[in-house]
Computed example of a mutant assay.
Amino acid sequence: MARNIEIKARIDDFSALYAKIALLADGIPDIIEQDDTFFVCPNGRLKLRTLAVDRGELIFYQRVDQAGPKTSFYSLSETQDPNGLRETLTLALGSAGRVIKQRTLFMVGQTRLHLDRVKGLGDFLEFEVVLEEDETEAQGIAIAEDLLERLQIQRQELVDQAYVDLLNQRQQHPL
């Protein structure tokens, strides 16, 4: 399976962070509308990411929930019928939640930096240091830690849960 090192942080000033990342980025960002449906999965997470009516990705991944850099192992398969696949998987496995977001994707070397506007949650920074087969987790963590410092992200801003978990908690315990 492919691997990356992930970090997620809650952010207060989307525009200010956008400007900082733009100075580091390899080019202009992509804006991506994402609709992620999560399914009941006992040994990891399974989500269907709808990108368009005729384009989606089924993604299985495993990672620990912890603040700071963490390794994620994942496998991805593309689909041309995300709505049909969502219906089938919901019937077969059950739905575990849904996350709708607008993602601004920057590339900085081998790292995908996401500025996410998550419906019902707010704004977040998430980045994934994509590891080459011969790279160690320690090398990826070093890259992630360097980016945290360069972007001036404080430890107390780090988030240890997936968006779907945060949304499900909010629904169970509204303010």
Rank of each mutant, 00 (worst) to 15 (best):
Asp36Gly: 05
Leu23Asn: 14
Asp30Met: 05
Leu24Trp: 09
Asp35His: 12
Gly56Ala: 06
Phe60Lys: 02
Arg45Lys: 10
Ile28Met: 15
Lys47Leu: 07
Leu46Trp: 08
Glu57Thr: 01
Lys8Phe: 02
Gly44Thr: 14
Asp13Ile: 07
Leu51His: 12
Asp54Thr: 06
Phe38Met: 00
Ile7Gln: 01
Leu23Met: 14
Ala25Phe: 10
Pro42Ala: 12
Phe14Ala: 13
Pro42Gly: 05
Pro29Asn: 14
Asp30Phe: 13
Asp36Glu: 03
Ile11Val: 11
Pro29Tyr: 14
Gln34Leu: 10
Leu51Asn: 06
Lys8Pro: 05
Arg49Ile: 08
Ile21Val: 15
Phe14Cys: 08
Ala16Trp: 02
Gly27Ile: 06
Ala52Phe: 02
Leu46Asn: 14
Glu57Tyr: 02
Asp12Tyr: 05
Arg55Gly: 00
Gly27Arg: 06
Phe14Pro: 03
Thr50Lys: 14
Pro42Gln: 03
Lys8Ile: 02
Asp36Ile: 11
Asp13Pro: 00
Gln34Ala: 15
Leu24Gly: 10
Leu17Tyr: 04
Arg55Phe: 01
Arg49Cys: 03
Ala9Phe: 02
Asp35Lys: 05
Asp30Val: 15
Leu46Phe: 08
Ala9Thr: 04
Glu33Pro: 06
Asp13Arg: 08
Ala22Ile: 02
Asp12Glu: 12
Asp36Leu: 02
Leu23Ile: 15
Arg55Met: 02
Ala25Glu: 08
Thr50Trp: 08
Ile21Tyr: 13
Gln34Val: 12
Pro29Ala: 14
Asp30Trp: 06
Arg49His: 05
Asn43Pro: 00
Ile11Arg: 07
Leu58Glu: 00
Lys20His: 09
Asp35Gln: 10
Cys41Ile: 01
Pro42Glu: 12
Phe39Leu: 00
Leu17Glu: 11
Leu51Thr: 14
Thr50Gly: 05
Asn43Ile: 13
Arg45Ile: 03
Leu58Ile: 01
Arg55Trp: 00
Leu17Gly: 03
Asp12Cys: 10
Ala25Asp: 12
Asp36Lys: 05
Lys47Arg: 13
Ile59His: 03
Asp54Glu: 04
Val40Gly: 00
Arg45Val: 04
Phe60Met: 07
Arg49Ser: 07
Ile28Asp: 14
Arg55Ser: 03
Lys20Cys: 13
Gln34Asp: 06
Ala19Tyr: 00
Gln34Pro: 09
Ile59Thr: 09
Cys41Pro: 01
Ile28Gln: 15
Ile21His: 11
Pro29Ile: 13
Ala22Lys: 11
Leu46Glu: 08
Asn43Ser: 15
Leu24Thr: 06
